[in-house]
Every structure is written in C-alpha cells, then in structure tokens.
C-alpha cells in the first residue's frame, strides 16, 4: 500500500483518537493546573499538595500495591485455569472457555453484589465456616482488603485467562511432549516450557488485570467500604463530595502516570520474551 493511501486510511482513526483520548486528557491536565474551581492562574499547587502529604501518597501506594496483590492472586489461579483449558480435549475446551468467559457476560455490579452475599457476616462462606466449627464468630471478610483482593481476582479472571489461553493454545504441543520425553515431569514442563512461552500472554493478562483492578471503583467501594481508601474513591470524593475538581484532576493525572509507569515496566519485561514466540 502506498504511503498516501495509508495516511488517508489512518487519518480518521487518528482523529478519533485525538478527540476521544488526547483532548479530554489535555482538558484534564489543564484543569489540574487551575488555581481554583473557577480557573485563575496556572499552578502546580495541587500536585505539590498531593506529593507533600504522606497520607495522599500512602493512598496511591496502597492502590498500586492492591493491584499487585490482586494481579498475583489472579495469575495464581488464572494460569492453571488457562492451562487446563488449553490442554483439555476439544469437546471440553469450548465448555471450559464458556465458563471462563461467563463472568464477562454479567455486569461487574451483579458479580460484586453476589460476592457481598457470599462474604457477608451471614454469607455463604461464614455459614460454612461456622457450620464446620472452624470459628466461633463470623469472619470479617467483607470490608477487608483480603475480601477486595478475592473479589477483584475473581471478577477480573477472564482478563487474565483469555490472553494466556490464546498464547498457550498457539504453542506447539510437541514442545510439551519433547520436554517430557527428555525426562521432565509435568511441573518442570510447566515451569520451563509452558510458562516462558506463554509470557506474552501472562504479561498481557497482568496488564489488563492490573489496570482493571486498581480502577475498579465499584468493587473497591462495595467490598472494601470507606475505610479502605483507594485512588478511584479518593478522586470521586474530591470531585463530587468536596467539589474540588482541580485537585481531583491533579490526582487523576498522578494516578494515571503511576499506572503508566507500572504498565510500561511490565511491557518492557514482556518485550524480552516476545521475540521467541
């Protein structure tokens, strides 16, 4: 294709990208530099205020850290699920993939509310725990970080499983057989062959789960409550509760940059594996 026609083809896309992404971003940055709600002189005061306060920084850190924990839990369960799907007989494969994708078909709100029913003081899990006599008092699962991590991991599971599954099912199954024929057991084969070769999928899955987990306002607030403050709730409170839009914009920008850094690191890590596949 000639460069001229390529340009003509990509032009609408570029325009769409500019209108839908770059423009709002510019407005966001501009807003974050406004002195007061009604504009005024540009200032980096909001950024300084955020950075200068350890409380704010700890919210950012906790949010990023929450993402790491949720992503790791998701990976821990997601990889085996993807592995089982990929190695399953064709007949079962479609059933398994359907089960994996099922959560996407229901709203995240519905899924989160179901978890409230499961994790609540009188919820399913506590009834089992009490019924088996494992504890005298109901466990505090709801409104705890552990609860948030569990629910995030489940709710975002398809985002982890699907990219891994895609990569795994493209791997030549002879490689697994070759590994076994050379004496390696299932675990070594998994660790030395399947995991490195599915790294691009793992990285993609991690980026998706991570980004989804740290911005999961609904899950974070419904399962975590107000005592566990993460960035989305923080931004929401500043914007809507306190009507402090410039500060909300500033912390949005900071949050975005922090997330981009994490994603870039993950991406760079993934690039190292890409060339082999």
């Amino acid at each position: 294709m000639s460069t001229a026609s390529t340009t003509r083809l990509t032009l609408p896309l570029t325009a769409l990208f500019a209108v839908c992404f770059v423009a709002p971003l510019c407005v966001l940055v501009a807003l974050s530099l406004a002195a007061g709600p009604d504009g005024g002189v540009a200032t980096i005061g909001h950024y300084a205020a955020f950075v200068g306060d350890r409380f704010n920084a700890s919210i950012l850190f906790d949010t990023l850290w929450l993402g790491v924990k949720a992503t790791l839990v998701c990976l821990l369960f997601g990889f085996p699920v993807a592995w089982i799907c990929a190695r399953a007989h064709v007949r079962w494969q479609s059933v398994l993939i359907f089960l994996v994708v099922l959560p996407i078909l229901t709203s995240v709100v519905v899924r989160t509310f179901s978890w409230i029913v499961i994790l609540g003081r009188h919820g399913l899990l506590n009834q089992i725990v009490l019924g088996l006599g494992l504890a005298d008092e109901p466990l505090r699962l709801l409104y705890s970080e552990a609860g948030v991590i569990i629910v995030l991991a489940q709710v975002q599971m398809p985002l982890m499983v699907l990219p891994i599954l895609t990569v795994l099912s493209r791997i030549d199954s002879n490689l697994f057989d070759a590994s076994q024929a050379l004496g390696a057991g299932q675990w070594r084969t998994l660790w030395r062959v399947a995991v490195p070769l599915s790294m691009p999928g793992i990285i993609a899955g991690c980026i998706l789960t991570y980004a989804a987990s740290i911005t999961a306002f609904v899950t974070q607030t419904l399962i975590g409550g107000a005592r566990l403050i993460y960035m989305p709730l923080f931004i929401y409170q500043q914007a809507v509760g306190a009507n402090n839009w410039p500060f909300a914009a500033a912390i949005s920008v900071i949050f975005m940059v922090a997330v981009l850094v994490v994603v870039a690191v993950l991406n760079g890590f993934g690039r190292r594996f890409e060339k082999h596949v």
Partner: peptide, 19 residues
C-alpha cells in the same frame, strides 16, 4: 464500627446483609 460504607447504595447493602 464494623463497616463504613463508601456510599448510600453500599450502606443499604450493609443492612440487607445484616452486616
């Protein structure tokens, strides 16, 4: 305090779940 809801929707859920 057993729970602090982030919004009124979640607050209602606290009661429904007898949390």
């Amino acid at each position: 305090v057993g729970a602090i809801a982030a919004n009124l929707g979640a607050y209602a859920t606290l009661w429904q779940q007898e949390q």
